[in-house]
């Protein structure tokens, strides 16, 4: 469904990604894990078109995305949730969700999708007329994901959805993501919470210093010594 082939990406003169290649197949939940500054967010920005690669190709459903502007990529069924959610704080919860369905094909079925999103996140239904700026951190993250779902994405990309959430909410968040995937949306999940991501992911890639350094199913990764020591705190912390 999604394929990255030897992507090199720069911020001005600074190279952030070095020959990144990976794939996400339809229906999968794939995790991309790695430490701070590894290039996880940059990878998502490349896929969603916010940043253009210097070389390499991104293909989605057989279509090359390199020259597509970011807003067109959303129409193709790819939606990225930004780090921290970035909900529109000055607008109501409902307005945020409506904006999620901005693309024509999503706008036509807006009301049905809205019902569906409210089923996944009942909290959002309760707060629909509240200004998004008044929501708690967890609620904002739900709203950000709900807003992305409103665009009816084939592939949903999440950037550290559990970041900053209370421990009890973290578990819930991973359950919800799992649920969204089970209902048919392919998910690419970027996380620092490696254990929880690997638990729900079909496969995972490990990224470090802008390079993919490991890949496998959850159990396989858990057995990697480097992953264990670096991310699961087995040897330090």
């Amino acid at each position: 469904m999604l394929k990255l082939d030897t992507i090199n990406a720069f911020y001005a003169d600074l190279q952030a990604l070095w020959g990144i290649s990976f794939e996400v197949n339809a229906g999968e939940l794939v995790a991309l894990v790695g430490p701070n500054g590894a290039g996880k967010t940059t990878t998502l920005r490349i896929i969603s078109g916010l940043l253009k690669p210097q070389s390499g190709t991104v293909t989605f459903d057989g279509k090359t995305l390199n020259t597509e502007p970011a807003h067109k990529i959303v129409e193709l069924g790819l939606c990225q949730v930004l780090e921290g959610g970035k909900v529109f704080t000055g607008m109501s919860v409902l307005e945020n969700l409506e904006l999620g369905a901005f693309v024509p094909q999503a706008r036509q079925v807006k009301n049905q999708t809205l019902k569906h999103v409210y089923e996944i996140f009942p909290r959002l239904a309760e707060r629909k007329n509240q200004r998004a700026g008044t929501l708690s951190g967890g609620e904002r993250q739900m709203l950000a994901i709900g807003r992305a779902l409103m665009s009816k994405p084939k592939l949903l990309m999440l950037d550290e959805p559990s970041f900053g959430l209370a421990p009890i909410l973290v578990d819930q968040m991973f359950q919800m993501i799992n649920e969204i995937n089970k209902q048919g949306t392919t998910v690419l999940l970027v996380e620092q919470n490696v254990r929880a991501s690997i638990d729900i992911a079909h496969r995972a890639y490990v990224i470090e210093n802008g390079r993919i350094v490991g890949h496998g199913s959850g159990e396989q990764l858990l057995s990697f010594e480097s992953v264990r020591s670096a991310y699961l705190g087995d040897s330090h912390a």
């Binding site: 969603s48 129409e75 529109f88 000055g90 904006l99």
Partner: peptide, 24 residues
């Protein structure tokens, strides 16, 4: 209006707005 809301969304965060499919 939808267009008006797209304008307000762009004011708040143009990246998030772009990711809604809004051509900024």
């Amino acid at each position: 209006t939808y267009t008006g809301k797209a304008l307000r969304a762009t004011v708040e965060n143009w990246e998030a707005a772009t990711l809604m499919g809004i051509d900024i």
